[in-house]
Amino acid sequence: MKLSGFKRELCGMILGLAVLAILPVFIQDTYLRHLLIMIFVYGMVAASWDLSLGYGGVFNFGHLALFGVGLYTYALLTKQLGVDPWLALAASGGAAVIAAGLMVIPILRLKGIYVVLLSFAFSQLILQVIVSQSDYTGGNQGMVMVPALKLGDHNMMRDKKLAYYYIALTLLSACLLFLRVFVRSALGKSIVALRDNEEYAVSRGVSLGRQRLLTLTGSALFTGIAGGFYGGYFRNTSTDVFGIDLTTLILSMVLLGGRATIYGPLLASLALTLLSEATADIGVWRPIIIGAVIILVLLVYPGGLAGALTAGWRRLSAMRTPRGQGAAINKVAS
């Protein structure tokens, strides 16, 4: 049986998700489940960023502000207005999409470093608005006692995070499917065309403004939802999500994972979240080690983890062919 590329990918995706879905049966530990939830959340944010950065070639340095918008939308709606948490979760995605739409206006025709600067300014503007409205948002202190997500009468607190695990996994699956369909569509191809040769693509009738708008809002949707989920999961908010540290962590997931792969950032989210947790006990040394790892990986593997894996896979499959065997033997001999 021969399957088309996308069908094969879909099968792989379903297989992977199935493995993740039965994982909680074997992982009973609350902390390990928490780690997986964080990997899913960061993975969503990083993979979405890959859409605008890797595929679109638009360096939106304010991507984490979209996460923040989702977080604060959820918290404000549920806590200050008493909106149903699930509705608020959907609204957090919508608010991030709107914020991304607004952000596109100033950067519509900009290039390179100016996009970085302006999206940075935009994220700072959102941060400053949140800080200045401390009566509602708690200002620099953040908000506490944010209402949690609810599943009927199910007690979310006493199931060892099982419900949160499945919610996060569902969101991640939806996010992944959305992103892969997006980049494989004609729209996705035109976005890549714009990135690779803007003048030619524009001259062939691709609209720069429309495509940038769709890319950035597309990257905002699940980033905002992830932010909303984060609020419902942790039940508090903090302006730290706008800080340079989280941006560094997520951005390095995108770069280390390998740009324009979607799966790469997800993989890097796994690696970096685990590294981050494994080093949690060594205090100040933790950011130092993570920073050093980021720099080292970039020095050694310019294509990121996905590039390294692809290269490794190729070498492996080359070794299985006779010619490859010869090469491998030569290597051993020399």
Binding site: I244, T247, L251, L255, I294, L298
Partner: peptide, 11 residues
């Protein structure tokens, strides 16, 4: 360079 200088800044 953005990510390497960010990482170095954290270090």
């Amino acid at each position: 360079a953005v990510i390497t200088t960010l990482a170095a800044s954290s270090i």
